[in-house]
Every structure is written in structure tokens, then in C-alpha cells.
Design a binder for these strands. Structure first.
Lengths: 194, 194
DNA sequence: AGGCTATGTCAACGGCTGTAGACATAATTA
DNA sequence: TAATTATGTCTACAGCCGTTGACATAGCCT
């Protein structure tokens, strides 16, 4: 409790924060432990010692902040607009954490060492909690389709920098996304238009 | 013209094919030149010699097969159903090439060395040709939104292995995707529901 | 003060990567 | 047959990576 000149828990938290920022901008392989250590101002060996392995550090980053879909008290009705706003979040948005975790997951989706972790994180932290907000037996399928839209738009904007999605009128894009998400989440699962 | 016992152009093509298959399943960094060389049954130095650098090999893989959106004679009306079918392609589909190129692009979207290449490839090979099939001034924006759906669904299915998207009734998913894509491509850009 | 523990640094290892140059062999050509 | 070119192999080099063990220093406790 009495704070040492340098508190281990504090630097460990700093490591987690810096690692989080790195994993948000680069994929698992492209983030080096030396990069994180340099951000913290510390030797590489220390991060290795505190977290055992890079894989475990990534695991703790993923599990660090829990999702608060349910804490926010979102209902099925508000979900489309909420997700659309999350995708187009301005900086300093209060739901930054949720999109950040999704982006971290997506960044390392193709990393063999991390693929197992990101898959379960996505399922347990995103699909299942959100599906619990929806009625119906195929809630998970509809949520998966909705998050395909969220994921795709985020990838296009953040990773690929597709210009028409970045430079367009944000309000129009947000409305369009909300409409698509509403159709994905609430619309009939099978059109049967014939 | 007279074929040597071992034709250089032939092995070069084999290298391209093997590289293509590798880049389809792993990201840029996770594909080693030695992996490709082993697939071909050849030494690493040879692929280095034929293609100069790994980055150039990746470039040639991306530019290898041109997209044939226009050759297929797809019209704006058929585009939603066509894209939905492409996402859910069965093996041996004839439009395998187009989805493959998209998946290669997405695999390496977060690879610093390849990000520049994949961005321009996505813009020039996907967004722009498809946008040319659509009327209206904001065609590129609508195409970008539509390909957010295509991209997201492909990432969910191929990279993340999200189960409800893989094990569900394919016909229902295809119809739902087609409906979403139609709304994204042809629906009003701005709802203005008030 | 003296011992002890927490906190962190330093040096190095083995492994893998892309790349480059020297070398070997087979096929063509003069 | 002799020379030359095409095709491919072998060796090796820096560089980065995650990981490990030995060492240093500062703070706490008795």
C-alpha cells in the first residue's frame, strides 16, 4: 500500500495501456515488445517478466476492459443507432472502449498466434452479450450479420482508408448505417419475397 | 519458345500460384519466402531472384488476375444478388478469383509493408470498377458501403470463423445479404425520415 | 547499520526473416 | 567438341524477434 518510489503495479498498468495503444494500430506480429517497452521507458525484459509471454500480454489487453453493452442499458430499439454512432465515433467519445476492443480484435484476426484469442474474445465479449439484448431464437445470427456491417465499415475506414467513407457527410452515413443495422437486427431473417 | 527441361517462365508462374495460395491464407508478414519456395520445390534464393523482393512478389500476386466485374456483364439490378452469391461461394465457383483477391487484400490490410499496395488495389480493382456499373454521383460511396458488408461478412466467416454465419442456412443468409446490399447500393443515400 | 526484497537493467541466446553473391549443372549454340 | 547461356543451389549475412538468467540499485524492515 505504501507507494515505493516506483510502483510495480503502476508501471504494469502503463505497460498495458501502451500495449493496448500499439495493438490498436498494428497487428499482433507487427507490435514488438521492444516498442512497448520504449513507450513505457523501460527495458524489454521487464515486460517479459511481468506478463510471462507476449501472447499472455495480448490476452490481458483483450480482457482488460470488459464490455459494457448491458451496463449502458441499451435496448433492442436503440441498438442500431447506437452501433452506427459507435462506428462513426468522434474522438473522446464515451463508448471508445468498445470500438477499440473490436478494432484490436480485427487488427490481429489474421495472426496465427492470436487468432484463437481474438475468436473467443469476439464471441464472448461482442456476439453473445449483444445477442442477449435481442429476443428470438436466431439472435446470434442477426447480431453476427449486424456486426459484419460494423466490422466491414470499421475495416474500410480505419485499416483501408477508403476515402468515400472518410470524407463523406457523416450524418448521412450514420443514418444509412443505422437503417442497414436495423434491417439486419430486427428485419425478417428470411425475406421469402415470392 | 523451344522448351528447356525446366522452363523459367513456368516455374515463375508456379511461384505466383503458390504465393497466391499462401497470401490467401496468411497475412503478408506471416507468409515466408521459404514457405513459397518449399511449395514450389525450389530454393529461396530463386524466388528472390525472379521477383526482386517480397514486396514486388506480393504486388504481382495482387495484379496477377484482373477483375472481371465488367466482363461478366453485370448490371446494377443483378449486382446485389451477385455479390451475395460471391460471399457465400461454394468451392469451384467461377467467380472465385474476385473473392480471392478481396480476401488477399483483407488479409494484409494491417501489414505496414503491404498496406499501400492493398489500398490502391482495393480502390482500383474493386471500388472504381464496380462504381462504374452504377449511376449517380455518389456511386463510389454506395459501393464502399456495400463492400463494407461484403468485407465484414467475409472477415467474419473466413478469418474469425464466427459460427452462426458458417453453420446457418445458406439460402436464408444469401437472401438477407442480397437485401442489405440492394438497400446499400440502390436505396436512398439519405433516409431523411423526418 | 545490516539484511532483505522489490524493481529494474544488461547481455546474450537461438531462431527466423529477406536478401545477395558465389557456385553448380544442364541445355543450347557456334 | 567447346563455349556460352539459362536455370537453379548453397552459403552466408545482417537484422529483428521473444525469451532467459545474471546482475544492479533503491527502498523497506528489524
Amino acid at each position: 500500500m505504501s507507494p515505493r518510489a516506483k510502483c510495480a503495479a503502476s508501471t504494469r498498468d502503463t505497460m498495458l495501456a501502451c500495449a493496448r495503444r500499439r495493438f490498436l494500430e498494428e497487428s499482433y506480429e507487427n507490435v514488438g515488445l521492444r516498442d512497448i517497452a520504449r513507450d513505457v521507458g523501460v527495458d524489454v525484459a521487464l515486460v517479459g517478466r511481468y506478463f510471462g509471454s507476449k501472447e499472455n500480454l495480448f490476452h490481458e489487453v483483450l480482457r482488460g476492459t470488459r464490455c459494457d453493452w448491458l451496463d449502458a442499458g441499451i435496448g433492442a430499439e436503440e441498438l442500431p443507432a447506437f452501433l452506427a454512432a459507435m462506428v462513426l465515433r468522434k474522438e473522446e467519445a464515451e463508448d471508445r472502449e468498445d470500438l477499440d476492443r473490436l478494432l484490436i480484435i480485427l487488427r490481429s484476426a489474421s495472426s496465427p498466434k492470436a487468432s484463437e484469442l481474438v475468436r473467443t474474445a469476439f464471441r464472448e465479449d461482442v456476439i453473445e452479450p449483444v445477442a442477449r439484448l435481442l429476443p428470438g431464437p436466431d439472435a446470434e445470427l442477426r447480431v453476427a450479420i449486424a456486426f459484419s456491417i460494423v466490422t466491414g465499415t470499421s475495416v474500410m475506414r480505419t485499416f483501408m482508408g477508403v476515402e468515400p467513407l472518410l470524407g463523406c457527410e457523416e450524418r448521412a452515413l450514420e443514418d444509412k448505417l443505422a437503417r442497414l443495422l436495423k434491417d439486419a437486427l430486427i428485419g425478417d431473417p428470411v425475406p421469402t419475397s415470392g
